[in-house]
Write a protein that binds this DNA or RNA. Structure first.
Lengths: 134, 134
DNA sequence: CGCCGGTAAGTTGTGCACAACTGAATTGTG
DNA sequence: CACAATTCAGTTGTGCACAACTTACCGGCG
């Protein structure tokens, strides 16, 4: 069962890869951009909570996004410990190029909309349960 | 949808991690051992086909398993290009310690046996379809 | 005020995942 | 037989994922 999960996840990111290459993003970078397109700016901690990633993964990832000119990292004035990721103009503009990606993947999945929806909710329940065992 | 897949997969390996730590294995190493416990010896290419991994991933992984004394890599006599992974006595012995792991994970999943079975087949169909689009 | 536990981000080190490439061995074809 | 194309394992380089640790900063308490 878990091998099926592992394989499917890798197969999905493999389908994303060539599409995201046009945007110059990796899959985790794309996830971060999705979150920021939704609401911005976001602290490293908030990004980590939404994506389930820690600062050890996010810090270098955000640095790369900053080097690409998509994101700016700014230290908070009120709390000097916090760093917020702000979108640049280029970062905001990229969202329109990315708008077709979810549909592209849904097409590649070869499952009906119902099946996809059911799969998604089952996976979310599973993730919840697995996290609870920690 | 794909984020659900990505999260669930990471959550599953996170549940495996402490259990596999007792065996001194990572999750991909455990997958290789599972394949070898099933049938042995296996060439790097065959392992790669069953797991969907390439030599760039498997070569160093097998070297680590060899360094742990679980596996021996031997060049084939007939075809000097090929390298086969053989289990050592210790490698074979480890399988009994690992026997309880699948059940442990099924318990942690918090889904019924039916739901797990259905999830597995859906994921397999999905993986198939995603590979086809390449 | 001074210190102290806790928190936020970053750093270091290990091990995948995968692309691109290398080098050796084999196979197919003229 | 010779040699070009292919196959196989391994190497190199990049980017996650995560544990363990470090550093800077906050907020509270004596």
């Amino acid at each position: 069962m878990c091998f099926a999960l592992y394989s499917a996840s890798r197969a999905a990111t493999a389908v994303y890869r060539p599409v995201l290459e046009d945007l110059g993003l990796t899959y985790p970078q794309y996830l971060v951009m999705l979150v920021l397109w939704e609401a911005e700016p976001k602290g490293v901690k908030e990004l980590g909570e939404e994506l389930g990633l820690d600062s050890g993964t996010l810090s270098p990832l955000l640095k790369r996004l900053e080097a690409m000119g998509l994101v700016e990292r700014r230290r908070s004035g009120e709390d000097e410990r916090r760093v917020a990721a702000h979108l640049t103009t280029a970062g905001r503009a990229l969202s329109s190029k990315a708008s077709g990606i979810p549909q592209h993947l849904a097409d590649a999945a070869g499952l009906s909309a119902d099946e996809l929806e059911q799969l998604r909710t089952t996976l979310e329940r599973l993730t919840e349960a697995l996290h609870r065992t920690r």
